[in-house]
Simulated scan of single mutants.
Amino acid sequence: MNKVEIIMHPVRFKIIQVFLDGLSKTAKKVATELKDVSQASLYRQLDALVKAGVLIITEENQIRGAIEKVYSLNVPSVNMTNDDVKELTKEEHLQYFLFFTAQITSDFETYLDIGDIDFLRDGVGYRQVALHLSDTEFLDYAKDLRKVYEKYTQNTPSSERTKRIISTITMPKKEGKAKHE
């Protein structure tokens, strides 16, 4: 199984999202955050993520005759590179992109289900902007954005902090001829 298949599996993707806060967690803790995933599926997918090197077992604690594992995310293993995706077909790219956007839609629906919606108070927003950038300017933009992410990913959870999911999609808007021409 390649890296894309490991990460983009629906249950494994949800598990990875649970670890994006940088904290170590037991399977029991992950289960409390993923109530819609059965226990058997959770343990099976945790095992698959460990075997793939996406999760690391950082502790093993003896609890009443059983061993409780503590997992952490191996962050470099979930960063997709050009080499990871360059062999995908157009159909595979579309499938993974649809899965990615469906997950964002699901997260947004969960937010809307809260009922007391206030975008300003909750820090919710979605927008699309077009930037006219040379290749060099785009690389500078991406580097600047990476620096911002790096600055704030060091924050650990606390009672004053809210976990916020930031999703970005970047692509060039290529003007071209229609296929039927």
Rank of each mutant, 00 (worst) to 15 (best):
I63T: 03
V70D: 04
V124P: 03
I165E: 08
S106T: 05
G65P: 04
T58A: 07
F119T: 01
G65R: 13
Y71H: 09
E68N: 08
S167T: 05
N61T: 12
T168L: 14
L112A: 05
L131F: 01
G65L: 12
R161D: 09
D140C: 06
I117G: 08
D135M: 05
L133R: 00
I104Y: 02
V148I: 15
Q103D: 10
I57G: 04
P172T: 08
R161P: 02
Q154I: 14
E109I: 14
R127Y: 11
E92I: 04
K174D: 10
T110L: 09
F97R: 06
L98I: 00
V85A: 05
A66V: 11
S134N: 04
K173Y: 10
I117E: 06
L73R: 02
V78N: 03
L94P: 02
I104R: 13
L139R: 04
P157R: 04
R64L: 14
E160G: 07
L120E: 11
K143W: 10
D118Y: 08
E92R: 09
A142D: 13
R164G: 05
H93N: 10
R146E: 05
K143C: 07
I169W: 03
S159N: 14
R121D: 10
A102G: 06
D84E: 08
I114W: 00
V148E: 12
K143P: 09
D83Q: 09
D113F: 08
D107I: 02
T136E: 12
K69R: 15
S72M: 03
D116H: 14
N79L: 15
Y141A: 07
